[in-house]
Amino acid sequence: DIGCGYGASTIMMAQAFPTASFVGYDYHADSITEARTRAQAAGLGDRVRFEVASADSFAGDGYDLVTTFDALHDMGDPVGAAQHVRRSLADTGTWMVVEPMAGDHVQDNLNPVGRAYYGFSTLLCTPASLSQDVGLALGTQAGPARIRDVVTQGGFTRFAKVAETPFNQVFEIRP
C-alpha cells in the first residue's frame, strides 16, 4: 500500500482479507510510526507491517497486488513511482490506483465536487508535488487520460477504469 499515511487503508484491507499479509509504505516517518501503533491496536501486528520508503524505492518484488489510495497525484515523480511499481509486481499482478473523481477536460470538472477538488489541488496537492524531486504536479484533477499516460510511461500496458463514485475513480493497471 504505497502512500499509506496512518495506515487506514492497509489496516482495512488486512481486516477484510484475514489470510493475506500487507505492507504499507510512506515517505513520512511520523505517519509510519502512527500506522504501526494502529496496526498493533487492531491486533494485526502479525500480518501488517509499515516501512518508511518513497514510492520509487520501496522494498520487495513479486507482489500480487499493489495499491495506491488518493496519493498518486501528490507524488513528485508519479512516472518514477509507476516504473518502480511495475518492477515490484508479479507478472500476473495488479496495481489498483484510487484517485479523486476527475474528467479529462476542465469543463468535466465544473461541478460541486470538481470545484472543491480544484481548491484542494491548488492549496495542497500541487504544492506538495512541486516540493518533491521532479515535481510533475498532476494535481487532484488528473483525469483518466493523464493517469493512463503516467502509468504507460511507467511500463504498464493494460489500464481500465473499473469503478467510480461521485468522489473517486478506481483504476486497474496491469503489466
Rank of each mutant, 00 (worst) to 15 (best):
N109M: 04
V79L: 05
R47D: 10
S121V: 05
S54H: 09
D104I: 01
T68E: 10
D64E: 14
F50D: 09
Y63D: 02
L123N: 12
R115C: 04
E51Q: 10
G62N: 10
T92A: 15
D46P: 08
P112H: 07
D46L: 06
R38A: 13
V79Y: 05
R49H: 06
G114H: 01
V48F: 03
D104E: 03
V106Y: 14
F120H: 08
A116C: 03
A42R: 13
G45A: 08
R115V: 15
Q40A: 08
N109H: 02
G45Q: 09
P112W: 06
T33G: 02
D91Q: 14
T94D: 08
D64H: 12
A81V: 00
I32L: 05
A53G: 00
V97D: 05
N109V: 01
G119P: 01
Q40L: 03
D77Q: 13
Y63E: 03
T68D: 13
T122W: 11
A55Y: 04
Y118L: 12
V48H: 01
M101Q: 05
R87Y: 04
R49P: 04
M96E: 07
T92C: 09
D91S: 10
A42S: 13
V113C: 01
S57G: 11
L110V: 11
D77W: 13
H105G: 02
R38N: 14
Q40P: 00
T94G: 03
M101R: 11
S54G: 15
A41N: 11
V98F: 06
T122Q: 14
L65G: 01
P112V: 03
S54N: 09
G43W: 06
S54E: 05
W95D: 03
G43F: 06
G43P: 07
L124F: 12
V106T: 15
D91Y: 02
V97C: 05
A71E: 09
A55V: 07
R36S: 12
G119I: 13
T92Q: 14
Q107W: 14
F50H: 09
L44H: 09
V106N: 08
A81S: 07
S88W: 08
D108Y: 08
M96F: 04
S57L: 03
V85M: 07
G93M: 10
T68I: 14
I32H: 04
G43M: 08
V85C: 06
A102E: 05
Y118H: 11
R86H: 15
D77N: 15
A39K: 11
A59E: 07
T37A: 11
T33F: 03
V97M: 08
F58G: 00
A102W: 07
F50T: 11
G80H: 09
F69Y: 12
V66P: 02
E51K: 11
D46N: 14
S88E: 12
D104Q: 06
T67M: 13
V52N: 07
V98I: 15
